[in-house]
Design a protein around this nucleic acid. Structure first.
Lengths: 226, 226
DNA sequence: AATTGTGAATTCCTTCACAGCC
DNA sequence: GGCTGTGAAGGAATTCACAATT
């Protein structure tokens, strides 16, 4: 069955990432196998969903037994393209950009922030987190190829985000994480993921306003929120 | 029609937030009305989707003309519960927590970070961004009621996130923004939104791995990514 | 003439339920 | 007996298409 040509939904891919993290935990606890049912309980999810998600990519389980954790970790790592290191460039060396450069959660998953970029002469030439240089954004394309950057994180004010994206695309980057509160549109072949704190907060605000007035009990096993 | 008892999907609410921001821009540009078609083009979205999203809450448009921008802004602001200020407490005064406290995008939308919390004695008593105090997380519940905090942002390491959530819920907070890379489960009546950078990055990595090998052109008008 | 609001159609995602295998 | 993999059913979200309205 493995590797169907079928289009895999983004929701499925997001869940694979969640599963992988959970498997890492289970492995650290010394578990050897896990059933879809046991995994499902961890995230209030349906076990068939987990089996379906995994079955898009192959038959990784053993009937009657469940999934071998190490084997499944290897497969998911490979499916998610995490077997080779992913190199991230962060554009905007403000508070958020610096926080990203310092974030140690990335390393656990084979991501490394290799450079920051800014246009402020006062910042260019500096170093963050002891080793990550702040380069001139004017040299973005050159640094991208010299440092083999895979992924760009846009952490600049909304008003300049669109022109930053143009330069990022021009430099040949195919994967973009956008933190600016604006809906950037990606050209074909370029994938953008939006991390929009204002949308998340305003959406929370909505539920506070409704939840309070309607007293409607959210069961909120909420599959849409990633 | 207005205010149907119908359950509104989270996807709809997220889009309302995006619409509102776009209306703010249009208003700043001096526009007076906008059609669903014109709005839709801004986000590669279907115009019927926009009309449906809005129609859940009332009949705000005028046939033949479109939507009055100021009127629609007022309605969306009220629907999203943004007419009163929302007060945010940030738990974890590390890089991310500090970046959140410094983030000036919030103010534009009636959110204010009013306190940080930490357990590190070296940090407690400090001040961030000139005016935001770092309080002892042990006093969380007291500060929440003294400062009328509505929303908690969890910006602590994954291993302590679950116990932080317990304290947050205990203090009566109903809206939580979780930045820790772990799937926290909310009790009924509490809404959690996850901002999980590792999931976003790993999902990007998947599309890089697939996109490159299959050369399948993403059209990526991607409605799931918020 | 232009554009909304909305039933109907469609597409996408999730859950059910069970045959097949260990 | 227990658990996977999956076709079929069910449910949700999106898009179509058009009557209604200004």
């Amino acid at each position: 069955m493995s590797l169907k040509a079928e289009r895999i939904s983004e929701l499925t891919v997001n869940r694979l990432s969640v599963y992988l993290r959970c498997l890492d935990e289970l492995a650290a606890q010394g578990e050897a196998t896990v059933s879809s049912q046991a995994l499902a309980e961890r995230f209030s999810l349906n076990s068939a969903q987990i089996r379906k998600d995994l079955a898009y990519f192959g038959e990784f389980g053993i009937r009657g037994l469940g999934y071998n954790i190490d084997l499944l970790r290897t497969h998911l790592t490979q499916i998610l393209g995490l077997d080779a290191p992913r190199r991230v460039g962060v554009i905007g060396a403000g508070n958020l950009g610096t926080a990203l450069a310092n974030y140690d959660g990335f390393a656990r998953s084979n991501f490394a922030v290799v450079s920051l970029f800014d246009t402020d002469p006062a910042k260019i030439g500096g170093v963050v987190s002891g080793q990550i240089p702040i380069n001139d954004f004017a040299n973005f394309a050159a640094v991208v190829s010299a440092s083999s950057i895979d992924i760009a994180a846009i952490a600049v004010p909304a008003r300049v985000a669109a022109s930053v994206l143009d330069a990022v695309v021009e430099a040949g980057i195919k994967g973009v994480l956008n933190f600016a509160p604006i809906r950037l549109r990606a050209p074909a072949g370029v994938k953008i993921k939006h991390v929009d704190l204002l949308v998340s907060l305003e959406s929370l605000s909505y539920f506070l306003a409704r939840g309070a007035s309607l007293a409607k009990l959210d069961d909120d096993t909420d599959p849409t929120s990633i």
